[in-house]
Design a protein around this nucleic acid. Sequence first.
DNA 1: CTGTTAGCGCATTCAA
DNA 2: TTGAATGCGCTAACAG
Lengths: 363, 363
Amino acid sequence: MGRTRSSSPTISEVAAAAGVGRATAARTLGGYGYVSDEMRERVLASAEALGYRANQLARSVSTGVSHTIGVVVADISNPFFGGVVRGVSEIASARGFDALVISTYEHFEDEIAAMNVLVDKRVDGIILSSAACDPASTAHLQLARERGIPLVLLDRLIPGIELDAVVIDNRTAARTATGELIAAGHARIGFVWGPPTPARPSFRRDLVDAAARNLWSDGERLMGYLDALDDSGLPLDPDLVAVGEKTEAHTYDEVMRMLALADPPTAFFCTETDALTGTLHALRDSGVAIPSQASVIGFDDSSWAAVMEPPLTMVEQPMLDLGRRAAELLLGRIDGDGDGEEAPTQLELPARLIQRASVAPPR
Amino acid sequence: MGRTRSSSPTISEVAAAAGVGRATAARTLGGYGYVSDEMRERVLASAEALGYRANQLARSVSTGVSHTIGVVVADISNPFFGGVVRGVSEIASARGFDALVISTYEHFEDEIAAMNVLVDKRVDGIILSSAACDPASTAHLQLARERGIPLVLLDRLIPGIELDAVVIDNRTAARTATGELIAAGHARIGFVWGPPTPARPSFRRDLVDAAARNLWSDGERLMGYLDALDDSGLPLDPDLVAVGEKTEAHTYDEVMRMLALADPPTAFFCTETDALTGTLHALRDSGVAIPSQASVIGFDDSSWAAVMEPPLTMVEQPMLDLGRRAAELLLGRIDGDGDGEEAPTQLELPARLIQRASVAPPR
DNA sequence: CTGTTAGCGCATTCAA
DNA sequence: TTGAATGCGCTAACAG
């Protein structure tokens, strides 16, 4: 039975101490219903004296509202998600909601487990950055919907699934960044990384297929890269697309490979922080100067990028806004009392290219 | 009254469907007590059919255990805390606990609010990186203790308060880093930043006092800086200690000020990321080359530091371990069923100096 | 082993 | 207005 922690006074105790009925104490403490000023004073006084604090869990069981939202991201230690969660928390806490945050490290099983935990803990809504990229594997999302828990997708869409979502316009961002390189005169641009492909793709079709089978955002960035190439009538050289694991070490190897090509790239577009640092390491170890011998554009601006030598041109993602908008959308659904399956809202926020000094014409 | 979300089947419904008593269903679904295999099968079958999922909130109200821990940090978007929270989550989730994380942005009132929320939501334990530096302002910590909720301090101690805690050995780390600079031949070393002081301190005593009145970790780092100076019999020049806000912009101003001194510093020790980037910007804008004209050591290593030109010598904090150890300590207290006020455990993890290429003899 | 019966702490209906 | 009584979903003595 309910263990006796170091006891927390209950409503009954306060009522007793105040010499009033349970309900009266509950009403004043809960802030609802009618209570005479006199009774209220009495109750408040003894509540104060006893150090009463409402048990939100009990309240939730009774009301069906927990004032807690779940946030499941790939990795909270990744600055991108850190920013996103900050944005979510900002607006959620302003409205009295707290966040239960869970990292999945891109493991699909962990994502399923996370969804279950959140549903079981009866959160009022869930913000999810899913690792799923297959409309078939969405039973866990189904669960939340069935239970009437609003869900909004964050940063990553799941192709074929219509749900509320807030994402970045990855494709346009990649197209713009690649276009910037092309405008500077580059024709051979390394793409680090596109979505990991099983083996080195030989044809454009293989790449596009791979993109569709991977994380939505990665796929979009690859498509944007291809768009830019098309825009200028430039050919796609599969050798210039990195494949494999998403680690700094592997990225390093891929860039070294590209650098050893007969006709190596004269510019690199890196779609994530690890890809960027891996590329920078490879460039340095190869004695390739930036931007005189190779131009570079990275993704996910950070204060570090501006103090690099040279300052790096970067694509900046509005992480905070991404989180804020997702939270606003979710909270709207929550009090929207929405049984009515209203049409999904999908917001696409723009990413911004911050031009600094790592892009120059090829020599 | 309990709204009828999109209905979640309850134990009673499962029991009814299975044609057994409530308790029997509860026992098999709750995994306790005796149940015959036959009954169990029946119950499990209808639970499966109905898509039953235990309501953890109700369970918590009944058992007094929520399997949730609270984590309050200064700012989840700060990579340091992101790493810490990851460490905490790793070991917590492995033991079935989820984390409710709240950022305070160093606002004391927010810290108090956060503690209240966590207590009210009946978390089983709390990990706190407090902004308090005064043993007098600890009523909110008192609350948790009274309610029997284990609390472990993270990254920051509160002078005069004896509580479980896991921190970094900031003083030694700062002493080592400063010592590294001294060993290279520097005698005038800028400290960016020490704890913010009301006005520019004139004497050592003023600085030490200021240190005691500020965030514990900042104070410790200043003391480490002073220790190193003492170790080598070097004098303290208050002009070489940055004061004021903790922002990149302000840090920039302070470094510019130092650079304009008649006898400017030949090296800088920056105790936080913003301080480091601010310093780097100031150095660049002043045309001061690293390390030929000024040596630099920063705090909080990141993958960026290694790709800087030159690669930066940094103090690395074991963020993950900090979080892991704190979580282990907390979970230990939680199942330690500890009413018994056992002696507080205070762990001090070592920080590591990563030598790269931003330190050289003064010219 | 099983079902009945109480709680847990709070919300809420309803008669007084 | 107030208080008694019931319910939320689950745990857990207790008797059979």
